[in-house]
Amino acid sequence: MVDSSLIYADIIGAVLSMGGLGLIFSILITLANKKLHVEENPQIEIVADLLPGANCGSCGYAGCANFAENLTGGKTQLSACPVCGPDAAEKIARILGVEVESGERRVAIVMCQGGDGTVKKKADYEGIQSCIGATFVGGGERACSYGCMGYGDCVTVCPFDAIHMNDKGIPVVDRAKCTGCGNCVEACPRNVIELHPLSHHVFVLCRNKDNGKNSRAVCSAACIGCKICEKAVDGIGFNVTDNLAVVDHEKYTRELVLPTEKCPTKCIVIVGKADEK
């Protein structure tokens, strides 16, 4: 049998050495903490806590804390984090949304209705099924050079599965799932997608700045710049510039007359419901 005094010596040795190390290092950390303390935006910590904490570096920043710092500072997008689950992403997007706007979630709006059957085809495109790819070779099949090309780059980059192509080749946003991360906005080479808070509910879904004759020639749902909408609201909320009507969301409210019915090409659309959250 092992001599019991040897056993005690072993145990005491282990306890003292481990305890000693623990003590020394904890004192070091305490001192370092005092000397190196940095005032930090409290929001950074809240956001950092919500992040996955895997410190994997995929976002391109040195760990989740660093990412949180840059995120709250507006230097990066939440979509840079591939590990972030939809629950956390929603919470963080809201926290960040608080900073940017008055507490409302933003969603993506696709400002185009020129899908198959509505827009004219100018060519047969056989190439990379990507919008940015098609841009290099003449812009794909659709005759309108301002509108959606339909190859789905926006769908590919959405981390939240919130945008999908419909059967006419126009992307449709699921307003419940969309977090307003902005990936699709960036991905669209024609800047057809915009982010709007839920309270904005009427949009002119067209980007075509050509005159009426030319825009009508390429798409049956194009804005022809006829100004009927502007006249219907006496210029409050709808303005036509460069042959394209644009909604001024500050001025236009639900109580005003809707130009939707009056628009000859039906390019003005009500999006979303009044009680949406």
Partner: peptide
């Protein structure tokens, strides 16, 4: 600060105890 020191040292001590009994 004291809590910091206590927690880390206590963890280390407990670890040392446990492992020496394991040994």
């Amino acid at each position: 600060s004291y809590r910091l020191i206590l927690v880390l040292t206590a963890t280390a001590v407990l670890s040392g105890l446990l492992l020496s009994f394991l040994n």
